[in-house]
Amino acid sequence: MADHVHHSGNHSASNRAELFVGVAHDCCIVAPDVQVHIAVGISAEDRVSAIPRHRREVFAGSSGALLLEIQNNGFVTSPLAIDIESDNPDFHFVVDPTPLTGELLERRELAFHSSGPGWTSLALRFRTTSLVGDLADRDRVDMMIVCE
């Protein structure tokens, strides 16, 4: 549980078209705030789901941060762990290890740094204390970050 950050290369992202459609699974509601990049839902049963605002986020420069909005219906106070797969070995995230507050709504930043301009394909899988991932991949976000 200690290492919440890892990178594994050669991730081949899904070749399937996806749209953010605003249809939330139970307990996961996308806030209307346009700054939020990923809405993370934690169900009453400590089940995690995540929906990106967009599949492709463009940032100026080689550093930035994704804003996560976490709706915590499980009163969970563990850290929000993120398993990260990327096709760019020069792209790094810094995951905030601070435990969640247990409050219904909180926001976190997921800071990143890239060695230069270009796009990085990412698969982010969110989890808390539960050992079991989501068979239907609702805890996973596939997205692209473009550094200009």
Partner: peptide, 27 residues
Amino acid sequence: GRLWSNLPDGLAFMTARESHAIVPALY
């Protein structure tokens, strides 16, 4: 680059993710 396919309208957009079914995405 990547290849994408789609159906033009309706649920196909919403069900494109590998393991998501039609019914959970219904309006």
